[in-house]
Design a protein around this nucleic acid. Sequence first.
DNA 1: ACAGTGACAACAT
DNA 2: TATGTTGCCACTG
Length: 127
Amino acid sequence: MSTPIFFDQVYEVIRRVPRGRVTTYGRVAAMLGRPNAARAVGYALRAAGQRRRGDTRTADLPWYRVINSAGRISLPNMRGGADRQAELLRAEGVVVSDDLLIDLSVYLWEGLHPIEIDDILSGRGEP
DNA sequence: ACAGTGACAACAT
DNA sequence: TATGTTGCCACTG
């Protein structure tokens, strides 16, 4: 089954977000060289949620470490989704306020160095 | 080929 | 501060 390149790149980056840290849709897009593709990143994560388990590309994907640029969890329309994400983050030490806000000045993961990104884009990243 | 969709983001009221 | 609008992008029938 062919999988969209961009989606896989998104998953590879998200896999590298450290425990107890978060990043944003926009930053992930920027890391991949597409500063205006934040929306597509969200699209990729939604697709990941639809994947059947067993797909090595999305299995154990720390999707919950991705939040929006305002530092808030955004999971519209998903039943109990936002609360679930908050729980998963708290479980690894991230402080999430009652209104689902996270302090980016404390938990934001700055991202990868350009060299590492190159490796990922060229399929040379660690499996 | 092309219009529709959405887990965004920046800006305008 | 809180909504609403507009630009963007990759993927899907």
